[in-house]
Every structure is written in structure tokens, then in C-alpha cells.
Amino acid sequence: MTDVSSQGPAPGDEREVLTNRQGHPVYDNQNQRTVGARGPATLENYQFLEKISHFDRERIPERVVHARGVTAYGYFEAYGAWGEEPIGRYTRARLFQERGKRTDVAVRFSTVIGGRDSSEAARDPRGFAVKFYTEDGNWDLVGNNLGVFFIRDAIKFPDVIHALKPDPVTFEQQPRRIFDFMSQTPESLHMLVNLFSPRGIPADYRHYEPSVLGGLREARYPTHDEQGPEIRGRVTRKRIPRANDYQQAGQRYLLMEQWERDDLVHNFVTLLAQCDRPVRERMVWHFLLVENDLGLRVGEGLGIGPEDVAGLEPLPGQDLTDEDRERLAHLGKNPPRDVSGLTMTHCVPDKRHVVTR
């Protein structure tokens, strides 16, 4: 195999080093790894794959996510401690070690589904992406404002995005597409209870190449090829264990204020009324397992009662807990879940909130 890495900078070359999108140095920006001098390229050509993928995407495809957003620049200042203890007991990351140490950051807040011309007030999860420009490379920290998500297995990500995105033919976001997917994915219920409540619309938000004319230079390759970890394991396609699909969503529903529950039910009824009958029935079946009051209220709005969905079998491959099976045996007649000792939480704790339960 050939791996023609760079020979390092010429004497006196003080230009900054070219890095990839993770902030790691690029050692050779002109030669990719091949099997033999004229052989095929290998799939471990990360720098080539990243470079060509960026080239292929030099536009904003409206079928991808997070097209609409806003970025703020600033710095992160470290405390150097966790409570009274030195932070070094918990992490080796240098940006945290020293009290007062500042690291440049860029923070981007965005909606997920809408295109670049979409409304910032849409009902949609809000993503955040924080890029720390550390001395060891760039550290990306990402998440969303609702603390949970629609899916557990990443292989479903294209599917959930295609369901939520506007139809590629009509360019309209359609409830029938959304709930067609969600009705077959009970792990999404906790997220749905968040998204279609008032929390789904928040009040507010709180690249280089080598050049002889002053661009960036390549870094000297620091290692040789024959090193690194050897990884062994068995390839598997087992399902990720799925528990509490209904419990957490039901608890969230009961911990809401009454006006929040009213808004949630209104949104579900309005959107599900536009869906096909089998989808509506399956969603009411799910909601009855989530919490009796939620299922009865949504079902009433759609003209679907517990007796209409009691004959539905669990989804193929769906793992029900013993509690779920007990609730299924008494569909529409289950008592409210016990939420004593629980309080509503979100991604940012309210320090002024006093827990009274």
C-alpha cells in the first residue's frame, strides 16, 4: 500500500496548519491511499472522502436538516473545578483544567425540518451545535432543546426525517406522512408529547486549503502505519431493547399544566384528523397505553373509542413490558399513572422552582 504523507513545511513556513472538520491536522491534501502505486483507493481515505463529500454538497439541499439557523461567537471560560474538587479528577480535557482559561466557541441554534426560508416560529425541535476551538482540535457538542428524540436506532434517522420533511412532490408537510411513521414507532411517543405541547414552540433562542498565496500548510505526519488498536467483536443486528415507550410519555402528560394538556390534545386531534383511518386508530391505541385520559380525549375528538382499537395487536417485534400488557388488557379503563414524587423537568432547570410534590 502506498501512503505518501507530506514531508512537513519548508524552513521558515509559519502558516497555520490545515485541519479537517473535526479539527485534526491534514497530513496530505494531494495524495490518497491506494493499493500499490496504481491500485484502487481504499475506503479508509477519510481526508479524501471528507473533501469530496464537501465538494458534492456545495449548496443547501432542502431535503437535509437544520437549514435555518443563527450563529453566535464568543468564548468558554473554565472554572477549573467541579464544586470544591479539581476538575482534573474527572477529565483530562485541557480546556477545563485551568480556572479562567478561555476557549473560542461558535454556537448555532436552528430548527430541524424547515428549509432556509422557513419560519423560526415553527413547531419543531430546536437543535444546538457548540464548536469549541481547543488547542487539541475542534470539539463539537450537539443536542436538541427537548432532551429526548423520536428514535433510538440511528438507522431510522433517514426515515424519521423523510416523514417530517415536506412531501418531495407537493412540497407540503403532511400529517399523514408524519404519523404514518410515528404510529409504527412507539419509542417516539415521549418526544411527540413534548413536541405537540406548548414546549414545541419555544419563546426565543438565548474552511481552508493549501495555497502559495497565504493559505494553510499541511502538518508533518506524527506516526507510522503499523500501530493503533486491534478491535474484535461480533456483528449483530439485534434490536435495541425498548422499555418505557409509554411510561415516560404518560408521566410527562400528567405533569403538564391543564392548559398544556388541552393544547396537546387539540394539536393531536387537528393533525390526526388529516390522516388515514388505520393511522388514527393505531395512534389512539398508543395514546391509551400512554395515559388513559390522553387516549380518551384524542379518541373522542376523532370519533374513535377504546372498543374500536381494542382488537389491534401489538406491532410486529414490539416489546411490551408486563405493565404495558396489563394496561392493554384494560384498554380505556386504566387508572391514572402514579406521578407522586415526580416533577416536570426540562433541559434547563429552573432554580427558582420549588418542588411541592
Rank of each mutant, 00 (worst) to 15 (best):
A121W: 00
F171V: 03
L294C: 09
S118Y: 11
A249S: 10
Y205F: 04
R206P: 13
L216Q: 07
K101V: 08
A122C: 06
V4N: 03
G295F: 00
V130L: 14
D350P: 03
P335G: 07
R234P: 10
R327G: 07
M182W: 01
Y133D: 07
G74V: 14
E226L: 15
L255E: 03
I178T: 02
M191A: 13
A273I: 10
H224P: 00
Y253H: 08
L255A: 06
D262N: 12
P175M: 05
D322T: 03
N267T: 15
N334K: 01
Y27I: 15
R15L: 05
V354E: 05
L189S: 12
Y75K: 09
L294Y: 00
L288N: 04
T185Q: 08
V112N: 06
T343N: 07
Y221R: 01
Q97V: 03
E16Q: 06
E135W: 01
L146C: 07
N292F: 00
Y246L: 15
M283L: 07
R176S: 14
L146Y: 05
D3S: 11
A154S: 11
R63C: 05
S183R: 12
T270Y: 02
E257F: 01
P11T: 14
L296F: 06
N267V: 14
G299T: 11
A219V: 07
V348L: 03
R92H: 05
V265M: 02
T103K: 04
F287E: 12
K101N: 03
H346R: 11
R94C: 05
A78L: 13
P202T: 14
K351N: 09
G228E: 12
N334A: 14
L312G: 01
Y253L: 13
Q251V: 13
Y253W: 01
H190P: 10
F48Q: 07
V290S: 02
R89E: 06
A10H: 08
G301T: 14
L264H: 06
T42D: 08
N144A: 02
G8H: 09
D104S: 06
P61W: 08
K156T: 04
N45Y: 06
V212K: 01
I60G: 05
Q174S: 14
N292W: 01
Q258H: 09
L289A: 03
Y205T: 06
Q274C: 01
H24R: 11
Q7K: 13
T134M: 08
P168Y: 07
R68G: 09
M182N: 08
H24E: 12
R89Y: 03
R89H: 06
G74M: 04
L296E: 03
D204V: 15
G39N: 09
